[in-house]
């Protein structure tokens, strides 16, 4: 029962050069570096969405952090405050409602893609759809800023255009990423539910008036 070969086995075989590079050995790095690396990865994916070209970064290294952050942010901004509810009798979309629309919609679109014979995994599709809400989130922020001022027809048209732009951008980006995985003949069938999904979300944004 000698411990020496056991230790030798763990340390030696071919892994030492890579661990010296610090590529795979993340055990003794600071927590800050670990977190920053993940944050950077999420940030790069956001950039890919804003500048959609045929990139596989969203598909290969999928994660659900970005969609979660976007979804929570949108749900928090869109939910009606209790004060508004008392004054106008308007509940507004609640946090849970936006949350459910976001995730249930993404799941339905993904299932549709799978049913049509798409060559993509479940979470890859959820990741792409979630990240591609980013343009709509930007338009939501713009709308919130516009809503600070007193509302006129011109401002409503501006909000409308901003949301339409976000909607088009989201749909275009998600199609750019998901187009590869679809059978070429059925792209229209796969795009339609995506269009509907972003339409409902953008409708929530534009109808959010307080």
């Amino acid at each position: 029962m000698n411990d020496v070969p056991l230790e030798g086995d763990i340390v030696t075989p071919g892994g030492s050069p890579s661990s010296e590079d610090g590529e795979f050995n993340t055990l003794d790095e600071p927590v800050r570096e670990t977190i920053m690396r993940d944050v950077k990865a999420v940030g790069i994916k956001f950039w890919h969405v804003l500048y959609p070209k045929q990139s596989t970064a969203l598909l290969k290294e999928w994660d659900l952090w970005g969609p979660l952050v976007l979804c929570v942010f949108m749900a928090m901004v869109l939910q009606g405050s209790s004060e508004d509810q008392i004054l106008t009798g308007d509940g507004g979309p609640q946090f849970a409602e936006v949350f459910v629309i976001f995730w249930a919609g993404a799941v339905v679109v993904t299932l549709n893609t799978k049913l049509l014979g798409g060559n993509i995994s479940f979470f890859q599709s959820i990741c792409v759809l979630g990240y591609c809400v980013f343009p709509l989130t930007v338009s939501l922020i713009v709308c919130r800023i516009i809503l600070i001022a007193s509302q006129t027809t011109v401002l409503f048209i501006v909000r409308f255009l901003v949301v339409i732009l976000g909607f088009a951008w989201s749909t275009f980006a998600s199609t750019a990423f998901l187009a590869e995985s679809q059978p070429p003949r059925r792209k229209a069938l796969a795009v339609y539910p995506i269009f509907l999904f972003y339409f409902v979300i953008s409708w929530l944004i534009i109808s959010h008036t307080y």
């Binding site: 106008t88 009798g89 308007d90 509940g91 507004g92 979309p93 609640q94 409602e97 629309i101």
Partner: peptide, 10 residues
């Protein structure tokens, strides 16, 4: 139509 919109969406 804003009253109880959450319920109506469901």
């Amino acid at each position: 139509h804003k009253v109880e919109e959450g319920t109506l969406m469901g």
